[in-house]
Amino acid sequence: MSTDAFTMEMLDVWKRPEPPAQQVETGFFTDTTLCIGCKACEVACKQWNQLPGDGFHWTGNSYDNTVSLSATTWRHVAFVEQFPLDGGGNSHAPRWLMMSDVCKHCVQAPCQEACPTGSLIYNEFGNVYVQQDICNGCAYCVVACPFGVLDRNREDGKAHKCTLCYDRQKDGMTPACAKSCPTESIQFGPIEVLRERARKRVEELHGRGETDAYLYGAEASGEYSALNAFFLLKDRPDVYNLPEAPRRPVARMRSNYLSSFAAAVGLAVISAFCFAKGDK
């Protein structure tokens, strides 16, 4: 190799390649009123993404033996059984609520804002994606996420979560969970189409007397952005183990910095006075 060619190759390392062209934003609409709790999404996700098992254990309190999302579980079906335990309490008829939980792919994602390496990005489909060749396992995203989605794998030391089947989308395919869902509880598509469809669905349900149906994350709320993977729910969010009003950590960062810097500079100035004055 000539010296010139070698120099060019060394310089290439520092060049950032052009990002892929922006595509139509995609996401999930998970309609929990259609979920039958078959867990096909969990299995399809594990299979396509080649995720290992988590060590099987019976919870003994519901059909939910997956328990939570983790670095190796990117879809998790929650089972809520609302049957009065001691003959009273609930205002509604006894019912099952099932919800296939997933990374929310926030429009403004706290994990992406926290990530110090730039591993977490919004890809060309507007999905939040962990670049595995960049992540160094600092675990800041783990504590930044208000939904407790991200986790670090103990084997490879890196953060993992739902990729919204980036690889499948690149080939124009539907993500594995949505593809396998037998009741179309998990719907995949352009996010604007999904939001419109979800609004119509809520109206339809309200028309049928199911007035407790509402959309979780279809629109921004206060300081928190909309979610590109949003849900149709039938009860309070914490019933499904979702936060009622998630906070955006960065929203208070500036004022935290200000008071912290004020104290530091204040103490420095006071000490300067002490040094100037001496022991007089």
């Binding site: 403004q108 709320s221 300081e223 729910l233 009860d235 309070r236 009622e244 960065v250």
Partner: peptide
């Protein structure tokens, strides 16, 4: 931060969060 709860469908159509 009203959050997302039964009966809080605001329909603002706003996707991004309030300005910091």
């Amino acid at each position: 931060n009203p959050g997302w709860r039964p009966g809080t469908s605001v329909r603002t159509g706003v996707m991004r969060a309030r300005q910091l």
